[in-house]
Each structure stands twice: as structure tokens, then as C-alpha cells.
Design a binder for these strands. Structure first.
Lengths: 232, 232
DNA sequence: CTCCCGTAAAATGAATGCAATCCGTGCTTG
DNA sequence: CAAGCACGGATTGCATTCATTTTACGGGAG
């Protein structure tokens, strides 16, 4: 019955774009647990508990853990299972160094390759974010913020760049969650930087945008390290 | 008996450096099969055959396949198993774009952070490579070549940068194997570029080295694309 | 002759079972 | 009394097994 449409879909999907894996929900579920801090850094990953938590057997869960280990979110110890990866200061520094590099290049390429429509879309996101900034609505601000950065990466039109960035950015998501509160001055500064970003994007100033993005991320890094230093 | 030393080892290993996973040999074994072309791009990955090939059950093999999928060497299709990832021209272009970015940054950082000992070591590698170049010993030349690039990355002293580079470089290893023959003119050019690289490294000219590495990789890209276009 | 469909064989994805290893508790011993 | 050790429970890693889907092959209709 459905063999034909399925086969056609498969044929169209097969050539290039990576098809969704069956256990994608499990993967994202575990990622959320790690990012939201339900599993503390350095803590053991309780396979049994997570199995009944997600209603699956240990086999698929272990496969997902292997993937998370490849992504750097957990560490696998022989005969001792998985532990949530820790984020040391130097490791965080190195992560930001590479993430800043990728994002800067993303901005540079975006200025060269972006379409007017995409610029307009980013502009729209920016103003919506600005509105949330004025109303001090932090979660919505953060959401739009990430969408803008993702849109710039997308405009760079390099899937490898995007996925590499996403992979590395995923490792610091947890640290970001921890620093959800923001000093008003820092927030204002971040908003100013976003204003400048939009201006540079409109001018297609790739070098300027690259430099600004790098500085923007360096500031964010300082915020996060600051937040990690002062617990609470 | 060995509980105590093992525990101590684990305690020292546990804090930061990622411990070796138990099935690392299986992973590298599969990688080699893909890179050496024993498994053609786009071909199905025969789980059963590989299981008896490596003498393991399907469970660990499937876990490794998931990891390889996360690395981008294979693609997982729902209910249809794994296929060797294909390397389209545009995908190859995007890969080289990011790899070049990472390697250029590696050179830049290396010039800022490298120790005199490391410089001397790279110099030694370089002259050994030069000797193989003069004798037209391509495999040895390639091996030293990769060692030099790896040494520069190591000198950049950023593990995240190194591992990201290694991950992406691993995806084009297969394409590299295919273009093992080299036109004499191209080879001479590559050797000249390596000479310049060493000079720039000795001068600690980070910007110059970054630019040269990028150009060097762009040339390599052209060689590979050229080799892919002309089969045989 | 070509195309389509129905059935069997094979392969995938997940669950369960089993040997080996690790961790916590209580006991022994100097 | 402290330190080391042995033993039992718990956990890991892998092999095996089972349902579901896909794929290959043969027959029949147009």
C-alpha cells in the first residue's frame, strides 16, 4: 500500500540531506537533561533510571550516550559508564576560542552571501528582540538572540560551519543556563552590540561584523565565567 | 589484587583527560575501512558481515556506527541502516572552507604560543619530509606532511581546535587517499609552500602563516577535486 | 514485453539475558 | 583504633533473541 510513496520519499531523501534518525527524541531529551542541569557535571549517568524515565531499553539509551560522548557532552569511562562532562575554566576558554572563530567566519561569509530577504528577516528578529529587551523579558530576549545568531550562521550558507558551531555551542549551553541573570549594564552592552551587528550586516561589512561577533562572544564568555565564579 | 592500582589510575584519569573507550579499536577499524575505500561511498554498511569481520556482536558495532554518523562518516537512514557518506562537490567545498579556517587559526595561535622545542621538532620533521620529497617517496612524504600539520595544531595549544580539525579532516581522508598520485609541478609547489611555512613559523608571523596555510589547503582542495573529476 | 503486485527471506531496531567488573559494607588484623 | 581486605549487591558491556520493516524474487495482468 504505502510502499510506493514511502519508496519515493526515501529516494528523494536518500541522496543528500541527512534523514532524521529514529531516536532523535531520545537524544534531544538527554541533551535537555544535561543542559538544564538535571544531571550535575561529573555525576554518573544512571542508565537504569533514565531507561524507565524515557520508557526505552538500555540498548538505544547506550547508543545515544555514545553519540553524546562523541559530541563531548558526556565522558565514557571503561567499565564505569558515562559521566556528565565537566567544564573547566581552560576548557571553556578553548571552546569559546573556537566558537568565536566559527561565528566570526559565519558573519564574514554571511555578509558576502546573504540575500535581502534573509537580511529583512534578521532585522525583524532584531526588533522583536529589542522590544523584549525594553520590557526586560529575559527568556524571550534570549530566544530571539539565539535565533539571530543562528540566522546569521544560516546565511553563511555553509552547513559544515553551521553544524560545527552548533556542536560546540551545545557544549556550553549548560553554562549559559547557569548565567541566565544578567547585569543591566551588561545587558545594555549586549543590546548595543546587536544594534551594531545589524548595521554592519546592512552594510555588508564582513570584516567589521566578524570582529564584532568575536568581541560579542568574548563578552558573553566573561559573563559566563563571572557567573560560574559567583555561585547562586 | 589489581583493584587498587586500577582505582588510582581511574582517579587520576577521571578528572579531565578523556579516557580511552573500550571499543576504540572497533571505531578505528571501521574508520580505516571507510577511508581506504573498502566500503564505497553511498554503499550500505553490511552489519552482519562486519560483525564476523571484527568478531563482535551487532550491539557494539551499531553503537560505533552511531558515533561514526555523529562524525559524519556515515549516514543513518531510519529502518534502512547506515550508508557510507557521499562527498559531493559542494559538501567538499564547505568542508575545506571550515578546515582551512581552523588550520589558519591553528597557525596563528601556534606562532603566539609555540615553544622553541616544538619549533625545532617541526623543523626536524620538515627536513625529513624534504628528503623524502627529493627521493620521490610519496607515502613517507605524506606521513611527515600530516605530522607537521598536526604538530602545528598541537602547538596552538587548544584541544578543542585540534579535535574539531581532526574530526573534519577525517571526513576528507578518503578523498585524500584517492588523490595519492601527485603532479610533479603540484608537488614542487606544495614543497615550496612548506618551506615558506617553516620560515613564517620561525619568524612567528602568525598572520602570514595563517594566510599561507589557507592557501596551501585551497591548493590541496583543487588537487583533490581534480583527482575526483578524473577517475583512475 | 513491461510493469505491477504478493510473498518469502533478510536486515534493522529494540528488549532481554548473561558474564565480568566495579562499588559499598562489614570484618579481620596489626 | 586505624587500615586493609573480603564478600554481596549493583552496574556495565556484550551476546543473544524477538517483533517490525525493508528488500529481493517470482507470478500475473495489461
Amino acid at each position: 500500500m504505502q510502499t510506493h510513496p514511502a519508496l519515493q520519499d526515501a529516494a528523494t531523501i536518500l541522496p543528500f540531506p541527512g534523514a532524521r534518525t529514529l531516536h532523535a527524541d531520545l537524544l534531544s531529551g538527554l541533551r535537555d537533561l544535561v543542559n538544564q542541569g538535571d544531571l550535575a557535571p561529573g555525576a554518573r549517568v544512571p542508565e537504569r533510571a533514565l531507561c524507565e524515565r524515557f520508557g526505552v531499553s538500555r540498548t538505544p539509551l547506550r547508543e545515544v550516550l555514545k553519540v553524546l560522548a562523541a559530541e563531548g557532552l558526556v565522558e565514557l569511562l571503561p567499565n564505569r559508564g558515562a559521566r556528565i562532562a565537566t567544564l573547566g575554566d581552560d576548557h571553556l576558554f578553548h571552546l569559546f576560542e573556537v566558537i568565536g572563530l566559527l561565528e566570526a567566519e559565519g558573519g564574514r561569509l554571511a555578509c558576502a552571501r546573504i540575500t535581502p530577504d534573509a537580511v529583512a528577516e534578521i532585522q525583524g528578529l532584531h526588533y522583536r528582540m529589542y522590544a523584549h529587551f525594553l520590557r526586560h523579558e529575559l527568556p524571550e530576549y534570549f530566544a530571539l538572540n539565539q535565533q539571530i545568531h543562528a540566522a546569521i550562521l544560516t546565511a553563511a550558507a555553509n552547513p559544515v560551519l553551521s553544524s560545527s558551531f552548533a556542536s560546540l555551542a551545545g557544549r556550553i549551553t549548560r553554562a549559559r543556563y547557569m548565567s541566565n541573570r544578567m547585569h543591566p549594564a551588561r545587558w545594555q552592552q549586549a543590546m548595543d552590540e546587536h544594534e551594531a551587528m545589524l548595521a554592519l550586516l546592512l552594510q555588508r561589512d564582513g570584516e567589521g561584523l566578524a570582529a564584532l561577533l568575536r568581541q560579542h562572544l568574548a563578552n558573553k564568555r566573561d559573563i559566563i565565567i563571572e557567573a560560574m565564579a559567583t555561585p547562586g
